[in-house]
Design a protein around this nucleic acid. Structure first.
Lengths: 140, 140
DNA sequence: CTACTTGCAAAATATTTGCGTTATT
DNA sequence: AATAACGCAAATATTTTGCAAGTAG
């Protein structure tokens, strides 16, 4: 029997209001503002509980630190090289990816796609001529 | 100045001959057969060195344990739910994936795709209608 | 009440690092 | 001979767990 506690509610509410796929420690830092005596173990414990119950999902994408999000459906992620934020990417070709594997006899149940690069906020301004002296203009 | 050592050669040779994307500990277990006094730290140290030099690549796909491979080009992976082996998947739609993100203003430099499911060896025999017998009846 | 949950500290897991010694160039 | 690399142990970093005390149902 899972009991409702102030800690659980606060942790879930915090995650729901954070679109950047925070780590357990980020969530800990945030909930501590409202509940200073909460333990990091409680945060980890409840994030694991929610994950096991299928209410949230855990993203093991950023090397070492797990991140969490409220979405539980299959979708891609974009992880910025500079600010390290993680964004959701709606995939349109999941079918295609699956087919590639299926052709070789693999049975695909789900996938994890992480794109790396620069998010809009972290890209150097491209419209300004003033920075053109740096001469770095990435082209496809 | 990077010096050539028996340890480095053995570690690299072991990785080159293993197509299953082994972890550092797997590699350690393997090289110890030939060099019993080698240290796990040496394995980790050299895997990191090779990775930093771009000679091999590190895969952070399996939650906790890093895996390594000799390929350094961008490609996908299939991670079996049962045997936990990791296989290479040649992507044909990397462009498409990139475009999805680019349309939203993201600048994609590389990607990581991990498909989860069952590899050919771990799939239950599908031809049999009944599961009356424990023995698998291969009939390809 | 009594079973689940918390907070704290210690343990567990994975990887890195300090240091004195060994081996490569 | 100089210095990169090794082996070992200790240190880090992240997450989990044992336990006594607190709290929800």
């Amino acid at each position: 029997m899972v009991k409702k506690t102030r800690q659980k509610e606060l942790i879930l509410r915090t995650l729901q209001s954070n679109p950047f796929h925070p780590t357990a420690v980020s969530i800990y830092d945030e909930v501590r503002k409202e509940m200073p005596h909460i333990s990091l173990a409680t945060v980890y414990r409840n994030l694991r509980l929610f994950t096991d119950m299928g209410e949230i999902s855990e993203l093991e994408i950023s090397g070492g630190l797990s991140r969490f999000e409220v979405r539980t459906d299959n979708h891609g992620h974009f992880w910025c090289n500079t600010c390290e934020s993680v964004f959701d990417i709606e995939m349109i070709d999941k079918e295609l990816n699956g087919r590639v594997a299926r052709e070789k006899g693999f049975e695909v149940s789900n996938y994890r796609l992480v794109l790396r690069g620069l998010c809009p906020d972290c890209q150097p301004a491209r419209q300004a001529d003033t920075i053109s002296s740096l001469g770095k203009e990435p082209e496809d």
